[in-house]
Design a binder for these strands. Structure first.
Lengths: 336, 336
DNA sequence: ATGAAAGCGCTAACAC
DNA sequence: GTGTTAGCGCTTTCAT
């Protein structure tokens, strides 16, 4: 390994002390003449300061860590962009880690972020690492949990969630407005956000006189499970004497799978069955799929802002979802 | 800011020296009894070692940096997964940064990685940072450039590319096999990989007696430009007396845009026009879109492997693309 | 305005 | 097997 040029080398080259170089680099009080000499030396020696050392001294790096559960969800791109912009505006920068939806990976990634002494941490769901993030918050590392509300958060531990109840309600209202009356739901796992979306849907549907039976909601993780779930929902609808005329998917991650399960059965959308799902995505417009979108860019900005601003107590923010109506639920009759 | 517990605190708590604690943590020679005492102290004090300090001493962190031009391309997910797996198997870990296709962001992100003294760097294209990556390679930080072949690479600077000529050829052969004879191309920018794909396509098409006129290739970056380009290609085909019966898109990033430009014009795929594009993506199966795929997972594994193994000279690797035939080019007649 | 020197948390020789 | 000590590259008092 080559020895890299250090601040000492620059100092020697410029004929000053390391303290002076440090001052020049970080904007201390120096003569213009010395500053020039130092910058010249920096350029000549192609000096790149060691952020590790800086961090050691400060007790903290300038990196904002983001641990994402599943980078493949389009939701995260805008979130990252939002966070990145705020970081860049606060001489910080963002580092991403993906957990591939695995708890063990999440644990490792969050620990790594802690070991790196990140300036702050943004985690999506972060269920497997609640103890650690609480501790980090206690140690002065602001943690922002996305998509999960934290019970009894300590100072420095914030949460940013979507109003999932409202997301479900939006879906119900739109579906009812499109004249649909027999809804089936495909959800992912039993995380609170998923349950709330279903609950909001059910509540609003019931208010319209359209009850949503327990067995009209199924959980699925893989493509195969989704396909099976859709089949089951269809059958149950028929058995119930109320054939399904709408399918709701409560997670953007399974949109493709649900859509495929429908089309491979020769089911026309929205002719036979309406389809509505979560999270906007690049193909949604092309396919005419109606979605309930999250303000992910804004969520990313806010999350990074929380890290940078370090508000005293815990902050719990709930963002409002938006319905993006396209054609997959048929025609909407506002007055119905 | 709270003072975090240090190795000294652990040492005091366990009644040993910091050196012993370090030995326990990193697997040196210690009595089982001391080891237990130390681990107890670590647990009791919830000690998380400071990776920054470790890195200062080693002159290098254990992080592998990945700088991605555009995370929104599905290509990168598998690449990241591949790299992440290899990193995890070599007590390393991956940190991502996204440049949002902006040269200035790329420069900042790569510099940041250098400042963090990453163990190695994986960059996609990295056009704006060639000087820096070369220097990094010289400083003992292996750099792997993805999707661009590096001219005259120094030791420690590697490149992983797709056989773009072959990618173009695969498209041509498939299109010809599907009986298409008038092809229009939408490409993105003038990067070498884009040009090579077009060149490979043109060469193979010509070999089949199907020349590809210069003006049947257009460049576009935004959705609007893509839409305009498709319109122009269509018009030119008609003017030429050979109406288009196939559209090729040489970048996965513009797949949606090209597809939309086609369908909004009421053009049936493959009825009126065949459509083939680069990079497999989640919706491709559902939409029946034929693609030329890159072995991105394998590329990611290989890239991280290059960082970890540190081969002596520069390594230039070219991966083979694969045709994933679906229905968007119509029926294939192998013997034609 | 600048330098000398101490120290951030950790590892690695070197003694014992 | 364990402790002592000397740094790693940098920032920051404290003098001057």
């Amino acid at each position: 390994m080559v020895r890299r040029t250090t601040i000492g080398d620059v100092a020697a080259d410029a004929g000053v002390s390391t303290a002076t170089v440090s001052r020049v680099l970080n904007g201390g009080a120096v003569t213009e003449a010395t500053a020039t000499r130092v910058w010249d030396a920096v350029a000549r020696l192609e000096y790149t300061p060691n952020a590790l050392t800086k961090g050691v001294f400060a007790g903290r790096s300038s990196t904002i860590g983001i641990v994402i559960r599943d980078l493949s969800s389009p939701f995260y791109l805008d979130l990252i962009r939002g966070a990145d912009e705020v970081a860049a505006a606060n001489d910080s920068h963002v580092m991403l880690a993906n957990t591939f939806r695995r708890a063990d990976r999440e644990i490792v990634q969050v620990r790594t972020m802690d070991e790196q002494r990140v300036r702050g941490l943004i985690v999506t769901t972060g269920e497997a690492t609640d103890d650690r993030t609480r501790r980090m918050a206690g140690n002065g590392t602001p943690c922002v949990i996305i998509a999960r509300s934290v019970p009894d958060p300590p100072p420095g531990m914030h949460s940013i969630t979507l109003d999932d109840i409202e997301a479900g309600r939006l879906m119900a209202v739109h579906l009812a407005g499109c004249g649909r009356s027999s809804v089936g739901v495909v959800a992912s796992g039993r995380r609170t956000s998923q349950r709330k979306r279903t609950a909001g849907l059910r509540q609003a549907l019931t208010d319209w006189g359209l009850p949503l039976p327990e067995d009209a909601v199924m959980t699925a993780e893989t493509e195969d499970e989704v396909n099976a779930a859709v089949g089951t929902l269809l059958t149950r609808g028929r058995d119930r004497g109320k054939p399904l005329d709408a399918i709701v998917c409560t997670t953007g991650r399974l949109t493709v799978a649900v859509h495929t399960a429908l089309t491979t059965r020769g089911i026309a959308v929205p002719g036979d069955i309406a389809f509505i799902t979560m999270d906007d995505f690049p193909w949604a417009t092309a396919l005419g799929i109606t979605v309930v979108a999250q303000p992910s860019y804004q969520m990313g900005r806010t999350a990074a802002g929380l890290v940078v601003d370090q508000p005293g107590g815990p902050v719990e923010l709930v963002f409002a979802p938006t319905l993006v109506a396209r054609t997959s639920c048929g025609e909407h009759h506002p007055s119905t």
